[in-house]
Amino acid sequence: MNLISSTRNTPLLEVKNFSLTFHSDRKDRQEPLTQVIRQFDITIREGEIMAVVGASGSGKSLLADAILGILPENATCKGMLHYKGEPLTEKRRKHLCGDQIMLIPQSLNALDPLMKTGKQVQTVMKGKGKKDGQRAVFRKVGLPDHVSNQYPFELSGGMARRVLIATAMVSNAHFIIADEATPGIDPHALGEMVTFIKHLAMEGKGVMFITHDIETALQVADKVAVFYAGETVEIANVEDFSGTGETLRHPYTKALWNSLPQNGFVPLEGHQPLADEKGKGCAFQPRCQRATDICLQKQPESRIVKAGMVRCFHA
């Protein structure tokens, strides 16, 4: 096998049977261990945008932390976590994070308050012509030239967000994690963000787009991984989200689709189980209309259905 084609086919990020557990030193908890992510599988290739969609508390942000290696010390990860075909060890992570793997954070506080924005963008660049490169990328994201001489506090929220995106664009990162990068912005600004992120993928970068907002996810991504109570219940293609969700595989994904205001706005009783409320069966079973005895007793394994992944006995 020739080396070049093999790296072409190797996915950027490959996660299999990944779990994340917290130890608690609280005495009033019966369970000293809390599993917040279990049996997580995902594969992201170059030029691909994978949205990870889930409610708050589903553990989706912890996933980003796990990849970046910034989990608290009382967390234990198990399973396979490969970057470009090789395990993402502590040592490799130090080498890769901030260089090949980059985070577009939710909080605008991530910008250094004491450094001019132009300089901040230049720090992630390599080689010569940094200044020209930075100017070019500012033009690309629609920031006027004088912004590079301003400090973060002088920028509006929208402009600061563009600086963060510009940083990801000029870096030679191959894999980008955007964690709730589009919270509560108006439709116009959202449209711009979507364009910029698609641009990143067109340059061959792989993007993991973490969000709670299925609508934005569908605008941005090629594939959507749906997260529920720490598990990927389904990985669907964007086209699967249509009509009343007949082509969707998992009952939760269907419910999510039909709860959108422009669809049925159909609510669902109950709530997502908290990390310590999970039973031994399927996590969605208490809210599922199609649940049977087997759903109570066993966790469904992941299966391939209609060119997508699903974790449900009845799909």
Binding site: V53, G54, A55, S56, P183, G184, H212, D213, I214, E215, A255, L256, S259, L260, P261, F265, V266, P267, L268, E269, H271
Partner: peptide, 17 residues
């Protein structure tokens, strides 16, 4: 004021109903 902006669609529908 953006009461359900940070919530998923199902929770949003449930709360608004």
């Amino acid at each position: 004021d953006e009461m359900t902006t940070m919530l998923d669609a199902i929770t949003q529908a449930q709360i608004w109903h």
